[in-house]
Design a protein around this nucleic acid. Structure first.
Lengths: 341, 341
DNA sequence: TTGATAAATGCAATCGATTGCATTTTAGTA
DNA sequence: TACTAAAATGCAATCGATTGCATTTATCAA
């Protein structure tokens, strides 16, 4: 079969000597259609191998039933789990999800949002890229009536739904745990960017130190992009200090991994000499030796909540209900790298 | 601004006292439009914050400029890198990419293909799920005139573009390398499913043994799904044999990782007592201790080739050019887990 | 100035599904 | 049988951009 000409509701209508309206209603389970007709339509639809054209429907309805999701990179387990959570809810409600990657690039992010708007997605769920400083593109989406929900890396500079974990609490817990293990000179890897999450983690770290009467030592706070290589460099830097830290809490698992590599190469014992903790519970953290203490971000839940928030906004429609902010409680995952016991 | 009513080419036309046709042509750089008009249109478009409605265009043109990509899971680094490669080429040609996950589930895969067809994607690039045994859904897409390109996990049961690495060669190289390291009882973790890649890797392993006059020992070939847990179980099984293997080549990195954990727990030295190698070059393989020997699959390249193949098919149009098959040469990555001395 | 081209723009149909408002058919009642 | 309400179906416009085929306007040579 060539199958070139795709069959439409008109083809079905023709075959049954009825109109496209009836076919449309039959396919959409409109109660105004008799059972007999509906049945006949369904049969012919099947026979003709009918495939609905969502594009036509979307044009007519003004809604595509597609949610655009923008993540920095899909291969970070955290992000892809969030997507999974979103999909779980969305698919149930017959929505599809487009995943787009910004590759941590502001321009690409802007382009992506534009592309999604042109594609007439019904909403956008995004985690902003690290070097995004302005949010006009999101505002633009909202002005167009496309709801926006931000997760994890969010901002208060625009009024959107927000879903995040309590980064402050997560960091506080980690730091407290390290202190309980007897650590007194705890270093911290952080990122100098504007995104809240790193600022909050830093605050959590600082407050935990203060609350436990530990001195805050500026030279133990190292800024970088916190990828593997950065973690290595940061650790090397710390090891050049007159007095070593006895623990490192990195706001990223990758940063912690870099530190671990350096420590192992120098045969410095983890956690005895230097305890180690990361943040995000990337899957590899349970594969390292020693396994890495970290903070789980409830990624699937986060995705689900995002989707729920989105659908709430959809339902609310024009009634400008205040966009909601949901904060999830993260979970401390204690593993070998910090457990002196 | 309410911004509720989105501006269309008609709004622009109205403002300029011209017709929508002219606006459309102006926006599309049609040479039949005078520079003056084009300029005016562009200005008004900007002033009115015009956002093209791709859905309308897609309906009229019969093409959405969207490629649907179906992967088992987006969080496997391999798959997300392939997607990245696809995007690189696609974006250049002004195509967008929808990423869908089948979660290794046949039914979900079928549904996804259906959804993509309804969304009228211009093509589908997919890696089939592990438990997919029939390929009617892909055939259906082709019958509808939607080109299909399969990558990595492909099949010869339908005529499509195919992009893969030479799994046979990769496996052969790994095995040969292990033999060169002096290993003589090399075990292999494989997957009993129909997908070619695992069969090819098994063949590569077997041939390498034969070519080096090593005995093929059935009990050293262990079948499983090759996730972490499976790897652990398989390794446990091997360690119950009267004579241990002196190397394990797992067709999956996760399987190898499971084996590594068990070996380490039992204080069996890697690679001295048992050498270890995986397949796929998942990022975590460079984080383990010892780092894991594996095979790189040229993921980005694979993605690019997929996209190129797709565009070739698009251009070819009806002229049923034979779908092409591209085989990439994988690269052996030797790391600590297999390097004796 | 007058044609005759070329250049610029307009008209109207089209893509396929949906839906408000008829209209027709059926069922039920008096 | 006549009539009415309810049920089933049809009509035609709509969503927004595109495009083949006019039609109008500008340009230039004779």
């Amino acid at each position: 079969m060539a199958g070139k000409s795709k069959t439409t509701i008109h083809d079905i209508a023709l075959k049954l000597n009825i109109t496209a309206s009836t076919v449309s209603r039959a396919l959409n389970n409109n109660p105004r259609i008799s059972k007999a007709t509906r049945k006949a339509v369904l049969k012919v639809a099947k026979d003709l191998n009918y495939q609905p054209n969502n594009i036509a429907a979307a044009l007519r309805n003004g809604k595509s039933h597609i949610i655009g999701v923008v993540v920095p990179t899909a291969n970070r387990a955290f992000f892809s789990s969030v997507v999974r959570g979103i999909e779980e809810i969305a698919n149930k409600l017959n929505y599809k999800v487009i995943i787009c990657q910004s590759y941590e690039n502001y321009d690409k992010e802007v382009q992506t949002i534009d592309a999604l708007l042109s594609a007439r997605v019904d909403g956008i769920i995004a985690s902003i890229s690290k070097n995004t400083l302005d949010f006009e593109h999101f505002k633009k989406a909202q002005d167009r009536g496309t709801p926006v929900v931000l997760f994890d890396r969010t901002t208060d500079e625009i009024e959107t739904g927000q879903v995040m974990i309590d980064d402050y609490l997560g960091a506080y817990k980690v730091t407290e745990h390290l202190i309980e293990q007897g650590c007194k000179r705890i270093a911290h890897f952080t990122n100098p960017i504007k995104i809240n999450i790193y600022k909050d983690r830093l605050r959590g770290y600082l407050d935990a130190l203060r609350d436990n009467n530990l001195e805050i030592i500026d030279e133990l706070i190292v800024e970088s992009n916190m990828q593997l290589e950065d973690g290595r460099e940061s650790m090397e830097k710390l090891l050049k200090l007159d007095e070593w830290p006895d623990a490192v809490f990195s706001a990223s698992d990758y940063g912690a991994m870099g530190a671990m590599q350096v420590l192992k190469e120098k045969h410095i014992k983890i956690p005895e000499q230097v305890a180690l903790a990361g943040f995000s519970n990337e899957p590899f953290t349970s594969f390292t030796d020693p396994t890495l203490t970290t903070v789980d971000q409830l990624s699937i839940t986060m995705g689900k909540v995002c989707a729920e928030l989105f659908f709430k906004q959809i339902k609310a429609g024009n009634k400008k209900e205040l966009p909601q902010k949901t904060v999830l409680k993260p979970e401390l995952i204690i593993r070998q790298s910090s457990l002196k016991k």
